[in-house]
Design a binder for these strands. Structure first.
Lengths: 153, 153
DNA sequence: TTGCTCCTCACGTCACGTGAGGTGGC
DNA sequence: TTGCTCCTCACGTCACGTGAGGTGGC
């Protein structure tokens, strides 16, 4: 398939595909007689791995090194401890990220709850210099999440 | 306080603080006689909001507009539906992200489990052209998570 | 022939990082 | 005077986006 279909399957732009090729992350399986890049199933698998590692927050240069590590014949077995290290590191990162996102979700939900009460609030100046947390229409339990207090002031 | 202490409290670089000023996101509360920028508690609150909105993935330009929306006297109340929209959008984003991270966590754990078995595997060429999923030392239930199959090949 | 896709430069963008060369203030 | 912090250019970087001008292939 050509770059357009390939890119859309991979969920990236054609420019991104060419950029990855430029960096040595990806290589078309062939070229048409007219010079069009041609891609197959191997490339789809490969770019999915790249996307996955990008999701983990790895810079493209490090992704390149991981893909290289597994390619070098002698390095295949040697790649195992390296991969273990990278993946364990990323597992820790994912755990921290999950926690942070959980906090963010609670803050967002809390703030949205407050805002829906603001919407129905009779107070004209509910979003004045006095923060929403001072609004008499809010019960004491409806605390404004810390980070958003400033926005609501 | 000067820019150095302010930046370290905010968890960003001094360059970032100056950049935010350049974009109109932040303004020092004053200047020393020698031209040093001076910051106070108001600025700390403000940059914490900026950091939070950045965490949500908002571009700086959009953050500027949110901070502007709440600043314009008439816009204070008008800012509510806008904020609701942005926050709801971000809540959806966070939910999708949480799900993706959960999948990623399971994939990472699964792959690490496989790798630890590879480590103890007697097969010399366990990481050869044949994927780990073909290794006779792995029970059928130890499937290599899809995304990582390529790495392990 | 017409559309659509692709090609290669090459400059632009976003959010800063990183010196270069100079100055403030204890 | 010495160190440390700050100042303003201004170029660099990362991961692409976005034309410009031209070509392939049904």
């Amino acid at each position: 398939m050509q770059i357009g279909r390939f890119a859309s399957i991979a969920g990236v732009s054609a420019r991104t595909v060419r950029y990855y090729e430029e960096l040595g992350l990806l290589k078309p399986e062939g070229h048409s007689s007219g010079g069009f890049r041609l891609y197959g199933i191997e490339n789809v698998k490969r770019i999915e791995v790249i996307n996955f590692l990008r999701e983990l927050g790895l810079p493209l240069e490090e992704i390149r090194r991981i893909l290289l590590a597994k390619a070098g014949g002698a390095g295949r077995r040697a790649a195992v401890p390296f991969l273990q290290m990278v993946l364990q590191e990323k597992l820790n990162f994912v755990d921290r990220k999950l926690e942070a996102l959980g906090r963010m979700k609670r803050e967002l939900e809390g703030t949205l709850k407050i805002l829906s009460q603001c919407e129905a609030c009779g107070h004209e100046v509910v979003l004045d210099a006095i923060s929403c947390s001072g609004c008499s229409n809010l019960t004491p339990r409806d605390d404004v999440p810390g980070t958003f207090e400033v926005i609501l002031q």
